[in-house]
């Protein structure tokens, strides 16, 4: 009896997965993109000074991903480092962090300022994020999620972006605040 049920179970499982894939939500895609950033960006050695065997993906402010980030990160490793999700309420909470999704619409500029000089790949949905000194900004074009990158900001954060990443993104020459 158990055997007879096996094909049916398998079919149901397959259909469910397929359904989820088709209905990939905006944040699902964004979560996948965030994970992919780690493959096209090089962090300097001192970025992992304190905890060399973990790679931290942080979310500042309200988490729009739901469970997606946790699901996508499950079992993943970046250059041998274990991937961990950390959610921050305040900039002050951020210690070691390699990629940070910033979702504090009112305080974006302040956060960028606070994080200046630190090797953190900043990502945000905020319009003008890159112009404000953020490194990667999501935007929508023809229902597709696109990237806008500020290479100068990346340079300032001592991060090396792959030319391949730059090629598919819109490049933004930002006004970097004086301070």
């Amino acid at each position: 009896m158990r055997r007879a049920w096996f094909p049916v179970t398998f079919l149901l499982l397959y259909m469910t997965q397929n359904l989820q894939a088709q209905r990939a939500t905006e944040y699902q895609v964004k979560a996948a993109f965030i994970l992919n950033f780690s493959k096209f960006v090089e962090w300097p050695g001192d970025a992992f000074a304190r905890q060399s065997d973990i790679f931290i993906l942080g979310v500042l402010g309200k988490d729009p991903f739901g469970d997606y980030l946790d699901e996508i990160v499950e079992g993943e490793k970046i250059e041998g480092k274990k991937l961990i999700i950390q959610r921050y309420n305040s900039v002050d909470d951020i210690h070691d962090c390699q990629i940070l999704f910033i979702n504090v619409p009112e305080e974006t500029g302040a956060v960028i300022k606070r994080l200046k000089g630190r090797s953190i790949l900043t990502v945000s949905d905020d319009a003008d994020f890159s112009r404000a000194g953020g490194i990667i900004q999501f935007y929508k074009q023809d229902d597709a999620i696109r990237l806008q990158i500020n290479p100068d900001a990346a340079k300032e954060a001592n991060l090396t972006l792959s030319s391949k990443l730059l090629r598919i993104a819109k490049i933004d020459e930002s006004d970097i605040p004086d301070e």
Binding site: V29, K39, F40, A144, S162, K164, A169
Partner: peptide, 10 residues
Amino acid sequence: NSTAALAFDS
């Protein structure tokens, strides 16, 4: 060359 295009759905 095509890694980024695949990674970011381009």
